[in-house]
Lab assay of single mutants.
Amino acid sequence: TLFEALYDYEARTEDDLSFHKGEKFQILNSSEGDWWEARSLTTGETGYIPSIYLAPV
Rank of each mutant, 00 (worst) to 15 (best):
L2A: 05
V57Q: 05
E10F: 10
D8G: 07
T1H: 12
E14D: 13
I27Y: 02
E4N: 04
G22A: 04
D34I: 12
F19P: 00
T1Y: 12
V57H: 06
F25T: 00
P50Q: 13
G33T: 13
T1M: 14
V57D: 06
D34Q: 11
E10A: 11
V57G: 04
Y9S: 03
T13S: 14
R39H: 05
Y48W: 15
L41N: 04
I49R: 00
W36R: 01
E37C: 15
F3R: 03
S31P: 09
E23F: 04
E32G: 14
N29G: 09
L41F: 07
L2M: 10
Y53N: 04
N29R: 09
W35A: 06
A55R: 13
I52S: 15
S40C: 07
D34V: 10
E32T: 12
G47Q: 04
S40Q: 05
F25E: 00
E32M: 14
Y53M: 11
D16E: 15
E14N: 12
S18P: 06
R39I: 11
G22D: 02
L54P: 00
L2S: 04
S40N: 11
G44I: 01
D16S: 15
L54S: 01
E14L: 12
L2W: 09
L41C: 10
Y53Q: 03
F3V: 05
D8N: 09
H20M: 12
Y9L: 04
W36Y: 06
S51I: 09
E32V: 10
E10H: 12
L28H: 04
E32N: 15
T42R: 14
D16P: 02
D16A: 15
T13K: 14
T43L: 02
K21T: 07
E14I: 11
V57P: 04
Y9R: 06
E23C: 05
R12D: 09
I52R: 14
H20N: 10
G47A: 04
W36C: 03
W35R: 14
F25D: 00
S40A: 06
D34R: 07
E10K: 13
S18V: 03
I52Q: 13
A11T: 05
E23T: 07
A5N: 00
P56R: 07
E10I: 14
W36Q: 02
W35F: 11
D8C: 08
A5I: 02
A11C: 06
S51A: 14
G33I: 11
L54A: 03
R12K: 13
N29A: 08
D16Q: 15
I52D: 11
E4R: 08
T13H: 15
E37Y: 15
S30I: 11
D16K: 15
T42V: 11
L54H: 01
D16V: 15
E32D: 14
Y7D: 08
F3I: 01
S51R: 14
P56C: 06
A5R: 00
K24M: 14
D15S: 14
G47K: 04
E45R: 15
E14C: 12
Y48K: 13
L2I: 15
Y53P: 01
T13M: 12
L2Q: 06
Y48E: 02
L28V: 08
I49M: 03
E37A: 08
D15Y: 15
Q26N: 07
I52M: 13
E10T: 14
L17Q: 03
G44A: 05
S51F: 09
S51Q: 08
R39F: 09
G47I: 04
E4K: 08
E14R: 11
F19R: 00
S18F: 03
